[in-house]
Design a protein around this nucleic acid. Structure first.
Lengths: 357, 357
DNA sequence: CTGAAAGCGCTTACAG
DNA sequence: CTGAAAGCGCTTACAG
């Protein structure tokens, strides 16, 4: 294996000079730099990340923690984050919680991320008190996306969930619907603040229309196609007065709802209207009305918010305490750098006026 | 930051003993081990991965290269691989090619993965000759999943694409269809051997039924919902004699096709039958008939095939050359360890007999 | 602009 | 079973 010593020998300089030349540091003459680069090229030299990181005191690695990489929102976020990190010279260490507690314990405990990453991106994950303490102990910079928990000192990049839900619900109200069901996430799911805020928006919109929310129309299930499917099937199996419209807290649940309606012989939107939140890839094809959220943009912005203070390739230690410096986050302003990105109502074929009968 | 020296001091032993005790090596007395573990616990000590890897000569990291993390198949594979790797103590370094050449160059060049990972998992990626040379130069163990290219010395975990396509097509033939269209992947896509094999299965099934494949019914597009949508729209816009059934090379394309058919006012399956390959999460909800492939199982098996010779947590250097040793792969048997997993026809509501007219 | 030397925090023969 | 010491391959003051 060729090392920095080999390059130094071939170029006729010291290893210190090789190190500087290869990293583009200023204190190297043009001629020397050329010789070093030529030697490195000739030897097909690649720096050892472990040696470099050990000596340099930084890992150039960011942990990305997501609940379920297979779901549209998280996959899209990770794709954007991966691109941004790699462009800035950072490695991406992926942790997929997947609802498994053993993974949670491995990731969210003091000894696992410690010394392993320079920063953390936490996507839609609700933290238990002990886990928050762990993160505080780690004392690493980080950013949350669609935060399930506020982490002190970490900015959060998100949409306004309450407003998005209100927009979706109001769209149904404007069409004339009065009995509007809501499919919400399981409170045990990882980011239940998302569910809570979307429910709040739903209820606010109803109340603004002088409708008292009917608890029997508000179902908790999984944030998945299958969850939406089962919840809707249950709603329909109850008998009584079914809703004329369904607001699902995400597009995947909305798709599941559409499937259940079809199975029950009901037409969308003639018999029941359906709207979600996301603008999933499939939504356009299925004609699903939705409130679009910019998942990729959330990832891009989060990476930028995180990396800017880190200084791109030149990591400076996270700033803490009394004097936060020019880029520092003030303890009194724990969400400095937080960003809320806009959503947009997209009306397609799955929503229409209720039947006249 | 607490180091191994701190633990050694508190436990009253040398750092060598701490190192051995913490890693569970046998040559430590029970009493000493207890003291060391207690000291480590008390100090909240976590080993520095970089120092450990530099000294130990292994990275305990596996690179996972996928074309598009946002697509169902790759997301599902990555989820399974991530679980298996983390359980075995390996980090997962994610590379999402995303059709971007700059990423390709960063990943698939000699200096990027070198010294950074112990092994590579390459998912459905077709390699150019120069990239194959690069991998040979890196001389790392690896495994391909749904291989786009045979990498010498790397086993491949996959389904039989030709057989899966034949099964799907035969299902349509058995229902009485004669004009069956095929939606295939773009030849520039990353894993075009997949497309080629699925086309072959389609054509073989037709020929077995004494039907000459009609090139005008065989469309190349992207392996996505949108690709299937546009290809189907084009098929329908041509006029003439439309197909009575569509075999899409993956479920996402099939979903796009269903959308285009709906937009054209055609019913599935009364007017046109549709079948895909995958068994995507959404397929059950949409009632899409398909040939199911075990994406998660492909990932699990690939991780096992890769990690078994690596010896789990105790990495031994990859075996090369004349004497491959007990776990080695013989140069004369480049795909030793390769696995083909079974697929399964799943008939739902999107396929039926052609119209009688 | 350049180099000698210390140091990053571990692991691993080697010796006992 | 345990320890002293060398070494992994870099980076970084420090000195010039």
């Amino acid at each position: 294996m060729t090392t920095i010593d080999d390059v130094a020998r071939v170029a006729g300089v010291s290893t210190a000079t090789v190190s500087r030349a290869l990293r583009g540091l200023p204190a190297v003459s043009a001629a020397t730099r050329r010789r070093v680069l030529a030697a490195a090229e000739q030897l097909q030299y690649a720096v050892s990340p472990n040696a470099s990181r050990l000596a340099g005191g930084r890992t150039a690695t960011v942990a990305v923690v997501v609940p379920w990489i297979t779901r549209w929102f998280f996959g899209t976020v990770v794709e954007a984050v991966e691109d941004a990190l790699h462009q800035s010279g950072y490695d991406l260490l992926l942790y997929n919680l997947g609802g498994r507690n053993r993974i949670r314990q491995r990731v969210l405990r003091p000894t696992s991320l410690h010394k392993r990453v320079d920063a953390i991106i936490l996507v839609a994950t609700h933290l238990r008190p002990a886990e928050l303490t762990t993160l505080a102990t780690l004392d690493l910079p980080g950013v949350t996306i669609s935060s399930g928990s506020e982490v002190p000192g970490w900015p959060c990049v998100r949409i306004d969930d309450t407003a998005a839900a209100r927009t979706a619900t109001r769209h149904l109200l404007d069409l004339g619907h009065r009995r509007i069901a809501h499919l919400s996430g399981d409170p045990d799911e990882l980011a239940f603040t998302t569910h809570r805020n979307r429910r709040r928006g739903y209820q606010e919109a109803l109340r603004e229309a002088a409708i008292v929310p009917d608890p029997s129309l508000d179902l908790e299930t999984q944030f998945t196609i299958d969850g939406g499917n089962r919840a809707t099937a249950e709603l329909l199996s109850r008998g009584g007065d079914p809703p004329t419209a369904i607001f699902a807290a995400c597009d995947e649940m909305a798709m599941g709802a559409m499937g259940a309606l079809r199975d029950a012989g009901l037409r969308v939107p003639q018999d029941v209207s359906v709207i979600g939140i996301d603008d999933h890839d499939l939504s356009a094809v299925l004609g699903l009305s939705t409130v679009a959220q910019p998942a990729a943009e959330l990832g891009r912005v989060a990476a930028r918010v995180l990396l800017d203070p880190l200084g791109g390739r030149e990591l400076t230690p996270p700033v803490r305490g009394v004097d936060p410096g020019p880029h520092g986050r003030r303890p009194s302003d724990p969400t400095s750098g937080s960003v809320i990105l806009p959503t947009r109502l997209v009306v397609r074929d799955s929503t229409g006026p209720p039947r006249a009968d």
